[in-house]
Design a protein around this nucleic acid. Sequence first.
RNA 1: GGUACCAUGGCCGAGUGGCUAGGCAACGGUCUGCAAAACCGUGUACAGCGGUUCGACUCCGCUUGGUACCUCCA
Length: 490
Amino acid sequence: MEEGLRLYNTLTRMKELFQPLQSPFVGMYVCGPTVYGDAHLGHARPAVTFDLIFRYLRYLGYRVRYIRNITDVGHMEEEGLGEGEDKIAKKARLEQLEPMEIAQYYSNRYHAHMTQLNVLNPSIEPQASGHIIEQIALIEKIIDAGFGYVSEGSVYFDVESYSRQHHYGKLSGRKVEDLLSNTRDLEGQSEKRNPFDFALWKKARPGHITKWPSPWSVGFPGWHLECSAMSAKYLGDHFDIHGGGMDLLFPHHESEIAQSQAANGQDPCKYWIHNNLITINGQKMGKSLNNFITLDELFSGKHELLEKSFSPMTIRFFILQAHYRGQLDFSNDALKAAEKGLKRLMDGWKSLEKITPSDASTVQVKPLQEQCLEAMNDDFNSPVLIATLFDGVRMINSLVDKKETITPEDLTLLRSTFQAFIFDLLGLVDEAPETGSGRIEQLMETIIQIRKHARERKDFATSDFIRDELARINIQIRDTKDGAEWAVTG
RNA sequence: GGUACCAUGGCCGAGUGGCUAGGCAACGGUCUGCAAAACCGUGUACAGCGGUUCGACUCCGCUUGGUACCUCCA
């Protein structure tokens, strides 16, 4: 068991040594998507970030239960359209579909996109709609503890009475007094004692489709409740890691803490991990800003902001080249750079096959491996890990050029290090197109032979013709010292 | 207004109290019939102003600029 992992805890604003509550078991809960639209770049970041963390914790030998929920009961939309309309219900009316039909449709697409990004499946992927009973039970606990009140068939969390005993705002650094003086006046909130009280249960208005019976009304659970209920159900009242995007810090995660404290008398988890957001041209992407790019559009290149398509692995590499706590700005140039960098890394990996070992090593492989581990141990620093791997690529190229030498043992270590960090931990996949069936291989062999003979006769018109024509169908000829190679591009 | 965070070379993006991040681009070179590809080499940048220090890009303060959250959003 590795002892050196340090991670940044949003709760303490410090890097802390990771010490699981019940090693070797680790419980991790991450806020998943609301399935009423296609996944976009913003969904890719937490998915890839926590995939990296999941992979690394397993690599260290922990037995991780990773929960990532699916929100399918809808959250409230309060602006413009009045209070309390359910997002999924709204879309359902527009498209004349059952709410669950929409949720299922987008869940399926989300999974497909995550698979393309080579994001591992979580251990459990609970749906909010499947845990209404647990959520109702949690509300009852909160009411019994004196921190919830019923009003007009809805139930609200009493932030003021809670804050007399606990610090509401300790995760996001807020003070209740500030909340009091700064909360905007929203219409139709007369049911609440205080404007910053949040709903635990909302009574459904006429026409509202997604609703369930409860002791208080036919309605639906409030927006912070599902995570509290489902994390407790599968990980217990106190677990190791809770993650999500920084935009969820307040009020979502803050309220989760309050709910758990109110119901169970303790914080839900030990470490809070938040990934930063992706911006587009320096601005955040959001559904309401209409500047988001879906993964589908990224992969196909069909979006006005995109100069070309970008493969799933390019997106994954792009995300991993920045530290998860830093903002990452999207641009075509940045993605193109990531695309080329990824290719360089993969070419380096493939070049390992060309190395012939010697009796002695002039390169240092062990320190390289240690640097990789140190990078990951330092709050999952994937950019430093990648930089170290590029140092490895330079080492590999020098070995291929026979400017350096390496023993069989070191070569094995180098190969296993690359295997572990590139594929097992960073989760990258070599996307180079298949060169095709054996017959095509033989055909290309023949063509290359013809071109070779033409060149030997100095018949460059023929050799260039072959090269140009192949290039037209995206087959690239590369002349190397050991003869010509070919590869399918794009 | 409150809260949180950030300002690094042409671009993306790490990191550190004194010693090379890395990738892309650019430039030079090797290779090549010419190319392409590939590989090698080259960049003293850290918003501004003060302070602490033998020494700060790295710590502290201020200023300026930016982003996010406070309202659905990863």
